[in-house]
Every structure is written in structure tokens, then in C-alpha cells.
Design a protein around this nucleic acid. Sequence first.
DNA 1: CTACGGGTGTTACCCCCGGTAACACCGCCG
DNA 2: CGGCGGTGTTACCGGGGGTAACACCCGTAG
Lengths: 225, 225
Amino acid sequence: MPTADPAPPGEPRREQLLNAADRVVQRDGPGASMNAIAAEAGITKPILYRHFGDRNGLIGALTERHTSGLLAAVRAALDEPLERRDRVEHVLDVYLAAIESRPQVYRLLTHPEPGDPTGAGNALAPALKRIADEIGEAVRAQIDLGSDGPLLADAWGRAITGMVLAAGDWWLEQQPCSRARMVRSLADLLWGRLATAAPLPQAAVPPGVQSPDAVQPNRAPGYGT
Amino acid sequence: MPTADPAPPGEPRREQLLNAADRVVQRDGPGASMNAIAAEAGITKPILYRHFGDRNGLIGALTERHTSGLLAAVRAALDEPLERRDRVEHVLDVYLAAIESRPQVYRLLTHPEPGDPTGAGNALAPALKRIADEIGEAVRAQIDLGSDGPLLADAWGRAITGMVLAAGDWWLEQQPCSRARMVRSLADLLWGRLATAAPLPQAAVPPGVQSPDAVQPNRAPGYGT
DNA sequence: CTACGGGTGTTACCCCCGGTAACACCGCCG
DNA sequence: CGGCGGTGTTACCGGGGGTAACACCCGTAG
């Protein structure tokens, strides 16, 4: 009994398939099989491959949908006319709110399939790489970091994104506190509270210690400063 | 011609198999197949499964080996009697040095297989979770953060680990600067340089703006502070 | 000497996954 | 009418993780 679905023409086939894929991913998490997605769409695999080439194509198209919203929200938050601390908190809040509202989608965006044996650089999924670039761009445009600017902007973009990824993952899993408090905690970290907080008494460093042999580079050819 | 290898008894079988697995992972990266590992060891799959149960068992045993070294190094760096900034830089340097010296091992530790469809919390691989705990422990023991201490320690442990993971990944891939400079960049971020650096002129916020509607929680039931 | 048990090893198989080839049907347009 | 593009199918391939069943060696106990 083929053609059970009259195929509403208002929605092109591709969109239908993506919707089906979306449903399966929401249910089974990332790693949903092509068979499962095809079954959910009421069809068989080859059609999926015709439309999307391979699994990456499908997942890519799927993530693209969800990424655009998150990315736009982050970008907007980065350009908000607020004081710097408030702007940073706003960005953090936008991200945490997004992952809180749709955890499965978030997992799809942040934990792509790992398989590829080539090179490195898989810590950040494509969607997150774009966020990292966005943050780097904002830092470069808004903050004066002297001659180190370009390097710091890129490095910090990755660093902050990874920080929020890991912390957000943990927060989502454990729910140890409210979102607002999590936002403040992370902003505090970025604001150097780790550096300025008082030491605990018994942990005080014996006075006179400065910086003996710490951080002696034992490898790495000397380029850069 | 079986029993080609006289099986040196000084090294129990299990260690031999792990060594073979190690070689394959160094060559093929994580995601090396059980067949490949078995072949490298000169045997066939069932023996591997007898010794390690399943793939996770093998990979687990393999990571455990390498993790212990890194973890011990980080722990030692965290307890170094240095000024706080130097201690943090030392920890960062230890991590970056480790991933720099053996990238494939590092990839194995940081990017485990992603497949599991259960819950969330996969952003940090087990090895990194342990590092995160270690950092949290150090923060809790060494720094006075008032009543927020426990929460901040755990959150920051994850956050810092994720930050270094993502930044380290990028640094390893792009090699944009020396290791020492990367260490300084990240420490600068943790030291609040993002907060204190001067704004670029054209990005100045119109005076009078304070913190209007930023960070308005639109979801999340109100627990926590 | 025989019987046993544990460790080592094998072949052959199962199921599922991603991906593809080959073929079939419908409907539209020249 | 003939094509042609889109939708669909069944059947298959190679390779992945994982397992069942069988075979061999060898040291030890009766």
C-alpha cells in the first residue's frame, strides 16, 4: 500500500523528511539510525540518501535548522547595548536557556558523531565552532587587547565556548542550582573571582615564594613571543 | 602456525594485548576497530572479548593507563607551593604539554565514543571528569568563596576543564602560538582580563545604560537562590 | 596413566549500520 | 507517443561489535 501519505504540497518533501528525522532524534537522541529515520518518515533508506547524500548530510541539514536560531540569539546577545558584565551574563543565559528548553536538540548540536580518524579538533562541534567564532569576533570588535588582540580573541572564543559547553552539560545533568545562579557563577569565573578570592587560612602559601621553576617550557620551539 | 610468539611470561597476557591496542590507537586514532587491534596482537577477536568483556572494557583499561599519569601530574601541579597565578599557569602548562606530546593518546582520552543514547553529560570524557573533580577539590580546599563555595568549586572545575579542553584542541590543531603564550592567554582570561580590558572606542556603550531587561529568566522553576 | 580444568586459540556465525545498485511506477510536458 | 524527473521498492555489500562452539596445550590430582 504505497503512497499512504498524500504528501501535502505546502511542505516540500525535504522538509517532511527533516521533520521525521527531528522526531526520531528527539526520541532516540543523536546516533539515531538511518533505518529508524526512514521508518519514521514511512519510507526506506535510499530516499534519504537521495535527498541528503549521506548521514552527515542529513544531520548537517538538521543541525543547520536548529543552529541558526541559537546562533542568532547569541549574536544578538553579544551586540546588546549593555554594560559588559550584563552583556556577558546575557549571552550565558541565552545559551543555558536554549539547552534547557530542548536538551535532545542540544545534544545533537554539541555532541556530533566522533568517528573521523583524521587530525584533531573535534572538541567543538560545528555549531559550537560558529559560536566560538562569533564570540571571538565580538571580543575583537569591542575590546582593546593591544597587540595580542587577534590571538586572544580567537583563543578566548574557543575557551569560553568550551567552558560553557562543559559547565552547561554538567548543569543540565545535575541541576545543581537555578539557571540565574549558574550564569552568575560562570560570569564570576570570567570576572577573575578565582584570582581575587581570599585563600583559605591553612592553604596560605609560605611568604617569600614567588615563581621558581614553574612553567618551564621543556618542548615547543620558540615562536610567538 | 599457532603459538608463533613464545609469550614472554614477564609480561602478563593482558598487558601484551593492551600494548597492541595502544599501538593501533596511536596509528589509527580512537575508533580503531576490534579487528584491527586483534590483528595487531596477532590473534582474533574472541580473545579480546574474553579479557575485556566488550569494547568499552578495552578502551577503559587503555585510557586508565594513560589517565593516571596525566591525573597525577595535574594533581601535583595543583598542590605546588606557588603563588596562585603561577600555580594555575603550571596546571595549564602541564595539560597542554601532555596533549602536545602525545596527540593520539590525548584524543583517545578526550573524545571517547559518543554513541550512548542515555541522558546527557557527555561533554567531558571520564578522564576529564576526574580532572574536573580534581580542580574542584583544589578550589574547595584552597580558596575561600563563602557560602557559594561548594557550588562554585564544582561548577568551576567543569568550566575550567571544558575551557582548557576546547582551547587546547584548537591550539593543538592550529598551532597559533607557543605553548607558553597559550598558557598566559588562558590564565589572563581566568584572571579577569576580559572584564578589565579597555573597550575599543567605537564600541563604547552609551553612558547611562546599566542593566535593563538583561537576564530575565523566562523559564526554569525558581529553586536555588 | 588417565581425567580434569583453565588458559589460549580458532572458525563461523549473528545482527545492525551506513551506503548503493537495479529496477518499477506515476505524472507531466513536448 | 516518448521521454524524464521524482518517488518508491527489494536486495545486496562491506564492515562493525559481539558470541557460540569447538580445539588444543599443559600442569595437576586421583
